[in-house]
Design a protein around this nucleic acid. Structure first.
Lengths: 211, 211
DNA sequence: TAATGTGAAGTAATTCACAGCA
DNA sequence: TGCTGTGAATTACTTCACATTA
């Protein structure tokens, strides 16, 4: 196989394949089945998997258990990456409870907030810790991923502290562009307001079409 | 200007520009300033805006108020798209409260759930309605966008009902690929588990680099 | 002069088309 | 025969480079 850079987009599809492989009750799958279940084309599925090796059998398909293990390994979920949520407002607590429900491969180890009124309270299986302990807890638990659900005023400062204390990736829900000056930290923004506003455009598009 | 298809990616950046334009305390901006504030390149900013017209003044920049109005109009936010949240669990209620806080351009008109124990309870400014009234409420409020925060078992069924009753776009938080058979409905997935798993890969990447 | 607007060039991602193999 | 794996073609997106204009 020609050695080439793996597109980010391909990486971001692997978890979807993985989920369906753990849910489906079959021994073998084809790229067509996997594609239909996840909403991608079969060629896309084959190419994504082929970036990492030849996991299938021509004329047959893929062995579900084996492919699951491969993707699990590629995503490094077998290393058990640990995460921390900073900001125990509505969104932060909802996320902790949401992830608590499913038996996740990425485990949330701590929930932090700056508000003394809620520090110490219980959220799911976690007790809210003071944000003052951020650096200490990152080291103690070996946190690799941080989920940022603080108000926008605090986001940049907290992100810098996270980056400086060794966190490698940040999932940023704060409504502000966070770009730490640490180039090795990967920031993935998820901005609900921006998503809704973009959808507004697409809603309008369709109306023009049909009317 | 050469008439061309506008990339989805460009549309999805406009809300970020819009937010900064409403927050910045200036009368004029350049593409460089706008780019730095939002994390994109100045060429990107100029090209995105130029898809829709020549809003700037050469040698000077863009008038903030005018550009804000233009983007507002392009995204059709001046039409006041109305949204509905289906699923009043942790995530659904958190989203309603979150959007309630900011004075949003996309207004959430209703919050629905199937659990009789919480139907009728108050969440932010909304009362939880029965999901049985879904079609009725979509028509009554003229809902264009639905936010799906139901468990995965219910997601596909609810999405189909939404599509059939005339909703044009769905923001899907349920951990399952929802593709309605109505091609005119735009589905935007946001899957927290998949995001975290993808980040796990990037965390691993960086470690290899530095160690 | 300083910044926009834009064709051209370059890069990235997807789809096609089919060779290769169980 | 059926489905994978993959170079080639295509399409989508971004960056470059500069002509243009207040």
């Amino acid at each position: 196989m020609l050695l080439q850079r793996i597109p980010d987009a391909a990486i971001r599809r692997l978890p979807a394949y993985l989920r369906w492989l753990t849910e489906c009750q079959q021994e073998r799958v084809t790229s067509v089945m996997l594609g239909q279940a996840t909403g991608y084309s079969s060629e896309q599925v084959r190419k994504d998997l082929a970036y990492f090796g030849a996991f299938g059998t021509r004329g047959v398909g893929y062995d579900v258990a084996a492919l699951r293990e491969e993707i699990y390994h590629i995503l490094r979920l077998d290393r058990g990456v640990r995460a921390m949520v900073v900001g125990a407002g509505h969104l932060g607590t909802a996320l902790v409870r949401y992830v608590d429900q499913g038996h996740q491969d990425v485990q949330i180890m701590a929930l932090l907030d700056s508000n003394p009124a809620i520090i110490g309270s219980q959220v799911g299986s976690l007790r809210v810790e003071s944000v003052d302990r951020l650096e200490e807890l990152v080291h103690e638990f070996g946190i690799g991923i941080a989920v940022l659900t603080v108000p926008k005023e605090a986001a940049v400062t907290v992100a810098d502290r996270l980056a400086q204390s060794g966190v490698r990736a940040i999932l940023n829900f704060a409504p502000v562009a966070v770009c730490t000056h640490y180039p090795d930290v990967f920031v993935q923004p998820i901005d609900l307001t921006l998503e809704l506003q973009a959808l507004s455009y697409f809603v309008g598009q369709r109306e023009q079409h049909t009317l």
